[in-house]
Design a protein around this nucleic acid. Structure first.
Lengths: 343, 343
DNA sequence: CCTGCTGACGTTAGCGCGAACGTATGCTGG
DNA sequence: CCAGCATACGTTCGCGCTAACGTCAGCAGG
């Protein structure tokens, strides 16, 4: 004869349920449910019996069942172009810090592709997330439609959306790039090169290029297309871009690197060549980091409040969920030009 | 008289359910369910009717309900000490790349604290994740007990656990630090300083310090406690550590920086002081990055396969879930010493 | 003494799916 | 001609919780 079929040791693996706790405490499961969500609405004596039972069993409420019954989850979905990029890590950290353990965070990586974003959106909607934070302003039509249809709060961060799906928080890449270009013009540079990341599916890079061109035309200068280039991300890539630019247009006197660590790479390349920055050539970067401050000479860069953007995005989401706010909102957190020795 | 109570436009917000699709396609909801999980087990004609209905409505299956019914989710939980640190970002990316959209990834930040990790574990178990990946080998007793009790696959990554809860994949920080110290000894350095991150609640840093001390004693050398220090992370902090060490023990001829960007900060500081590296002092780092390769002189560092660790961890998790593997496993992915000019 | 109210708790009825099992139909072979 | 089996699909039930409502005791005030 075999073992008892339903012994604790074998099939007992099903785990403690709320009804078990209720039975142990001599109450109905509804009372346990209430304790779990708001301990103040049961009598102290009852409460302590229930808590004793929970402690004794190590009961962990099943949020899946709870979510189905209440028709909502506390899960927030976040989609970033890349999980590798430390820029996005700042925003992720800001989101995570505000959400806390009460709102689990689901993160997906779109791989810088619209299709990837759409797949992630669908997956998140399947999980019935209570809100979505995106780090891209450009979306596939289908992705946009799904978000609209879902009727959940949606926050687009980073580059400020002109036609947000719902809410947006960030800064204007165009304005920032324009401001930096004007700064360089104000310092007397006249042959200013521009390097950004590939603009395909990357509205941020495209906006920065537009800002640069905009500033030049405001100053009644013609952009020289030979020194407006796109480059893959990375330190080496920045160095290569600098090499390319000075070869094509030797009279170039400044370069604005708009993206990742390109400027740092360029500076290291200039140092390697023994050029004095900014005398031979001025270098301006973006996305200030401790690194850019520590190189020699320290880099003049744009600084964006990425961590704060994450916090605000999460904050706006929670406010909407708790009904403390409603309706569309666009929050511009601006940018700073950090003036240092390199330009 | 008010509007019809249940019109599509007002209360119709409840969303499409599987039964709706089934009705549209003239089948039972079970058939729809089957299509969603394995399209090959229904007839082509039926399948196309169902898919047409899904397309027409934009139906997104409710995974919350599905998970409750099947008593399992596809969600993987990942806990990292910090979301800000690009080191962990590599591993996160590896995990995410393997999991793909079929296995949503929930990420929590323990804030380098055991208590924070425990809270995250509890939250994940509440969501009934199908597996957990941890980036820490040290856990609170309660956290450890919950993981054991939960009976789900658990993978500890990073520093190789000696007593893993379940499975582990990573490398030995101790061996790596020991190897680097021996390398420096082999190059003739005799007054080797050591800087690591604070060892409290950070088994990785503690292991590295142990490896360093181990190598010295193997070489029958006594460690000088004045030049074995802990330092907060960051570029500046690395520079400060270097300044401190040379002041305390001027005859110091090499420093092994075990953590984050400390070594780079030290190198930049040395450059600022006009010291020739490695002639005045040799500098070795850890956690190789493009940055460490690009500074001048390029840094000798330890390299850890962080991305690969993420991939393997996710891979082991999925294998376990699909039943293709079982039982404990410890995978050592090793490390490399990258020899460059700085030491 | 009855009404009305508040507080503390119980009861009922699902939430939207999927596991397990049931059924109808066609097809094969002896 | 029917057992035997596979294929394609339907039915039933319940996963573990919560919203909504019900109940009952206690108490104040007229």
């Amino acid at each position: 004869m075999k073992e008892t079929a339903d012994s604790e040791e074998t099939h007992g693996r099903r785990g403690t349920r709320m009804a078990d706790i209720a039975a142990m405490a001599g109450v109905s499961s509804m009372t346990v449910s209430r304790v779990l969500r708001d301990r103040s609405c049961v009598m102290p004596a009852t409460l302590s019996r229930i808590e004793a039972a929970i402690d004794a069993t190590g009961y962990v409420p099943n949020r899946v069942a709870g979510s189905l019954a209440s028709r909502r989850t506390d899960i927030v979905g976040l989609i970033v172009p890349s999980l590798r990029n430390s820029l996005f890590a700042e925003t992720i950290k800001g989101v995570s810090d505000i959400l806390g353990p009460m709102h689990p965070l689901m993160i997906a990586d779109s791989g810088y592709s619209l299709k990837g974003e759409e797949i992630a959106i669908r997956a998140f909607l399947g999980q019935r997330v209570c809100g979505i934070i995106l780090h891209n302003t450009k979306h596939s039509p289908r992705g946009r439609a799904m978000l609209l249809e879902a009727g959940i709060p949606c926050i687009e961060t980073g580059n400020l959306a002109q036609q947000p799906i719902d809410m947006a928080v960030g800064f204007s890449n165009r304005d920032a790039a324009s401001a930096m270009t004007m700064y360089l013009l104000g310092r007397g540079y006249r042959h200013i090169g521009f390097v950004c990341l590939p603009t395909k599916d990357n509205d941020r890079a495209a906006e920065r290029k537009a800002g640069y061109l905009n500033a030049l035309s405001h100053a009644s200068l013609l952009a020289d297309p030979r020194i407006v280039i796109e480059s893959p991300p990375g330190l080496k890539s920045g160095g290569q871009a600098l090499s390319y630019l000075v070869e094509v247009v030797p009279e170039i006197d400044a370069v604005f690197f708009s993206g990742d660590v390109l400027a740092t790479g360029a500076l290291l390349e200039a140092n390697r060549r023994g050029w004095i920055v900014p005398d031979r050539i001025a270098i301006a970067g973006s996305d200030d980091s401790e690194l850019q401050e520590s190189v020699s000479p320290p880099l003049t860069t744009l600084r964006f409040p990425r961590y704060e953007i994450g916090r605000r995005a999460a904050d706006m989401l929670l406010n909407r969920l708790s009904g403390r706010s409603s309706g569309r909102a666009i929050v511009d957190l601006g940018f700073e030009i950090i003036r240092r020795a390199s330009a």
